[in-house]
Structures are given as C-alpha cells and as structure tokens.
Design a protein around this nucleic acid. Structure first.
Lengths: 199, 199
DNA sequence: GTATTAATTAAACATTCATTTAATAAGAGA
DNA sequence: TCTCTTATTAAATGAATGTTTAATTAATAC
C-alpha cells in the first residue's frame, strides 16, 4: 500500500533517526515533530513510538548517535610514530574539513542547549571532553619529553587547544569570509603551534 | 481579577520578553509556547499576539535583545590609554566573569542553531562578529606599532583570538572542573599572550 | 463627564501534538 | 499449512498549539 517494504528493527530504527536528523536540519529541533519525522521516513507515526517508546527517548537515541560520531572522531587521533610527525598529523586532523563537517551544527547547537538542563546529557558531554583533554595531556607529555613542543603548564595548554579548536569550528562561520576555510585552518594551526611553544 | 496592573506597551513588551527568556532557560526553546510565556508573564496569551503579531516575530524580538546584549558588551572594549595597559584591560575583560555570564547559554545555543537556517539572523550574527574582528585588527595595529605586541599576520591573530575566546566561554563548562573558572581564564589570557607574541 | 484610545481578556478556531489501543499483515519456524 | 512473532498501520484520544475575532476594561484627552 505504501510501497515501502517491511524491514527489521535494526534497519528501521537507524532510518528513522536519519529522518529525524534531516528534519532538525531542515526545520529546526523545535519543529521536529513525530509526525514530520514519520512522514520523512515514509512510515506511520505510531511506528516511532513503537520503537522508541516516547519522543524524548527518540531524542536521546539521536543524541547517542551524535555522541558516538564524536567518539569515532576522537578515535582517529594519532597515537604512535615519530613525535614531530605525530604533532603534525594531530594539528592537520584537528583542522581538517573532515573534522569540521563531522556533525551538523544545527543539531549540535540544539543538543548543547539541551545539555544545559539535562543533567545526564551534560555528564556525557563532559565525559567526552574529559577524554579529549586526557588525550591531549598524554600527548603533550610525550611530545614534551621528545622535545617536539615546549609547554610550561600542560593543563593550561590543553585547555587552550580545546578552546581554540572548538571556538574555531563552531564560530568561524560567523567571522571568516566564504572560501577562506583553508586559510583559517592554517591560521589556527599556527596559533596552536604558538600555544605549544613551537612557533 | 488577575491582580495584575494595567501597563503600557513600553513596560509590557520587555516584561513578556523577559518571561520568554525565562521559559527557554527553564524548559528549552522547543517547549517555550505562547501559553507558557503568557502564564509566566501573568498575562493572557492573546496579549502576546497583540503586541508581537506572531510567535515568530516574538522570537525575533528576543533575538534582537540578545544581539543588543552582545553589542553592549562590545561597547565596553577599551579604546584609549596607554597601549600596554589597554592590552591588559582587553584581556582581563574578554576573560571576565561579566563577559562569561552576559548571556544565557541555553538561549544562545538555540539561537545559533536557528541562525543556521535563518539567513537574516545569520547575517546579523556575522555582522556582529565582523565588528568584533575589525576592532581586534585596529587594536592590533595600534598595539603593534607601540611595540606592545608582535604579530606577523594580524588577520590570523584576530581569528585565533576570537576562536580562543568563544571556544573558551562556550565550551569550558564541558571540560574544566567546577570552581576552576578563574584559573581557566588565566590560562586563556596566557594563551592569548602567546598568540599576540608577548608570551 | 463624555469620547476616545489603548490595554487586556474571553471565547472559539482549526490544526497539530504525542500517545494509546486494537487491528492487520507479513515473514520465520515447525 | 499452521503457529508465533514482529512489523506496521488505522483510528481515536485528549491536550496543547498559535491565532482570530469580539468584547471589556481602564486610562487619556477634551
């Protein structure tokens, strides 16, 4: 009748979340109703409730996916190899198009807003950034001992790197000219080098 | 009957926007309905429509206020005086509690999400950051000539400062420990000095 | 004190909201 | 083929959505 095939839960649930993501992108989190998501997924609204229980749980399922995207991103951070080369790979990855486009800003901004009044979400985001910070501290220790960087206060440098990186990716669209993203990344890498004492 | 006094439009409209802001803070932008805002303002829902026309226009009125808050913040940036002292005042202001708490993060994150699909809002935010950038470039030129800083690429340094500042304020809550905001600010000021060649 | 203007509410509107309950349909295993 | 499970829809729910229209109330101007 609908022209849609019967699918398993393992196929349908991700498809619904994909539709949810698209609706948020197109119309905003505040306008992403169950009915609209269902329509985009080509499915009856009650099927979403059947799979997720409530809309809130569906939101949290999408949050899980977005957080997982970040976790996968962090998993790409370089671990071994020559210190100088590793530093180079780290900076190049942090300011790559891949890193920049990993998530949708409309979705992430909405979830960051949500985290302000959703304790467990806040805790999960903090946990993610905590791992980020630990990674940077470890690397700075290694790179420091190898003489690849020169930092006096690793904690301060880690905070600065995270701030520079997040500020750059989330806000550059508000102050750089169109078509200058590559140059912006070079600028940020240079600033990162100054912070790491290798300017 | 309601116990509320009759007020002029000049008093009522800001009061309604204040209530709107509070509802977003407490329940999120996606749950801030006209009825809830009216209830918090102690007023009938149709009064909001009478004053603002539509909910969307009411949203834009609140956006105006938030953007104005930022504009007033920028107006506090130091202009004259001794270069070294001015640099000191600039960094101290950028990483002050006043700067940090000037806006509500739940509200701003929601509006940043909105800007992704609202062209005129995007343009207005870009305009704001453009002025921020111009200010920094002007100051860097002056400070540079006075020997207070040493930057080779002012554009790159301005982008780095903005990124560091925004990334710090919007994301520090996700990676610093409670009660370490002051230390974090000191770290950021030190990083800013490195970027400005006065480390 | 009356007329006028502006603030405010009341009531009703169609629409959309998330969700429930029950029915249907399809595939899997026996 | 029959049974059982699971995917899917249909239909109905009451509440909440934003908005309109008309009525009411209070202050202002004359």
């Amino acid at each position: 009748m609908t022209g849609r095939k019967r699918q398993s839960a393992e196929e349908r649930k991700p498809a619904i979340l994909r539709a949810f993501h698209q609706v948020i992108e197109a119309e905003g989190f505040e306008n992403a109703s169950v009915a609209k998501v269902a329509r985009r997924a080509g499915v009856h609204p009650s099927l979403l409730i059947h799979y997720f229980g409530t809309k809130e749980k569906m939101v949290m399922a999408l949050v899980d996916e977005v957080l997982e995207t970040y976790a996968l991103l962090f998993a790409k951070l370089p671990e071994g190899g020559d210190p100088h080369e590793r530093l180079e790979r780290l900076l190049t990855l942090l300011w790559s198009l891949e890193w920049h486009e990993a998530v949708n800003f409309s979705v992430v901004f909405s979830f960051l807003a949500l985290s302000q009044r959703h304790d467990s979400l806040m805790e999960r985001v903090r946990n993610l950034y905590g791992r980020y910070r630990v990674y940077l501290l470890e690397q700075m220790d290694l790179l420091s001992k190898a003489g690849a960087i020169h930092v006096s206060d690793p904690t301060a440098s880690a905070e600065a790197l995270i701030s520079l990186c997040e500020g750059s990716h989330y806000f550059c669209r508000y102050h750089i000219e169109a078509g200058t993203f590559d140059a912006h990344c070079r600028h940020m890498i240079q600033a990162a080098r100054l912070i790491l004492g290798v300017g």
